[in-house]
Design a protein around this nucleic acid. Structure first.
Lengths: 221, 221
DNA sequence: ACATCATTCAAGCGATAACTTGAATAATAG
DNA sequence: CTATTATTCAAGTTATCGCTTGAATGATGT
């Protein structure tokens, strides 16, 4: 088609990278990592207008990072496969490993406290089994209802201060949120530690937990 | 320090993706995967002007995908670490897996012939040890001289037709080039098969071979 | 210090992307 | 069929990107 097949190929690879090159689309992908969603729900969660959201989604679809299906009058989007998640992950790892700027932002999130190492998902699963840990889900309640780690309590950042007294001061608290792109868990841990609680962050979030094949509890309405 | 730390973080991740979103920069990364290079050499190989090349390189450096050092009056660039290579690889895998367009371009490269499965690097190493295979390096001779698989013959696509008679018609021929982004090996295999030879492509290229820790022969002098 | 060479910076141009607004399409309900 | 609701398309604006040109910087050799 084009002048050179080599350039045409590179153009296709670049298309996929370009789809990942806008913060708005990374937000959408993070949402979709929680589970499939309709356009309006995505627009709500990300703060984008419907039309804008739709256009971003179409760009993601062109890059084959997401696929869509119709359900009545709604169009439901979801990640094409786990490879999309892997690509987001590697992107994040490279950025965090090499960009001083990222380091600074993450440090700022911890509110000056030194953030402790995150807890691996395998360790959390083991400690959950023996009941020696309190798990905190720091996502909006609708996302919690759509699936959460069994035994986790739900509290948004805004609600966190209110439930502080009800949290055990002896057991360790492990907070998680949407995944590595999400900063809720970082901020929750900072708040908890500021109040003297023994809190750490889960490595990854619910999508990664589910990807591991671990149990997820869904509230039925 | 922006309005929201969350957005600032996503902006940084997006920066890395944006660095990968131009074909010119993917070309540069492919060249750098062969080994470190100066700006002029990179400009030559990619066909970019010096100034343009320099600007692309700086964008890659801002994204921390490459680093540079001074050597006299020259500035030498190289990939920051193997993670950069991994990111390029995953990008390619996602694109090839899901984009019908890529499928079509690759099929076109094979000149209508059905391309056989590529040979894995482990298999090639084993068959090299027992001498049951001819290895063909389809890169420009300067890149061959800077490092190649021990025992490989060098021939560019242009030279390929001339050396055809000297290639064994009984043993299998395995062709490789710069790596998965490079189409030389695809085209060489197509040419060889069109002439009735038993040729296949190596999975990956020299950078991946080196990354495996396998021996690389460098011409001195 | 001066000249030289490799690289980078700065300004300008055309093309593309993000976002907004308002209209068009598609599936369902009455 | 018409109305309704969810999504997509289309046009327009502003900002950014990729590329070019020409000047500026930085290291080296005389």
């Amino acid at each position: 088609m084009s002048i050179s097949p080599k350039l045409a190929l590179l153009e296709e690879y670049a298309l996929v990278a370009r789809a990942l090159s806008a913060p708005a689309r990374l937000m959408l992908l993070e949402q979709l990592a929680q589970g499939e969603r309709g356009v309006e729900a995505l627009a709500d969660k990300t703060g984008l207008t419907i039309a804008n959201c739709s256009q971003h989604l179409q760009q993601l679809r062109r890059a084959a990072l997401v696929t869509s299906r119709r359900d009545g009058k709604a169009v439901i989007y979801r990640l094409t496969d786990a490879k999309t998640l892997a690509l987001m992950d590697l992107l994040r790892i490279v950025a965090e490993r090499n960009l001083a700027q990222v380091e600074r932002i993450l440090r700022g999130l911890s509110g000056g406290y030194d953030a402790p190492e995150p807890v691996s998902r395998a360790v959390l699963a083991a400690r959950l089994a023996e009941g020696s840990v309190t798990v905190l889900d720091v996502r909006p309640s609708d996302e919690y209802a759509a699936g959460h780690i069994p035994g986790a309590r739900n509290a948004t950042l805004a609600q966190l201060e209110q439930i502080l007294p009800t949290l055990a001061h002896d057991a360790e608290i492990v907070a998680y949120c949407r995944g590595p792109y999400c900063v809720y868990a970082h901020q929750a841990v900072a708040t908890l530690r500021r109040h003297g609680l023994n809190a750490r962050r889960l490595e990854g979030g619910l999508p990664e937990w589910r990807e591991d094949g671990r149990p997820v509890l869904i509230d039925v309405g």
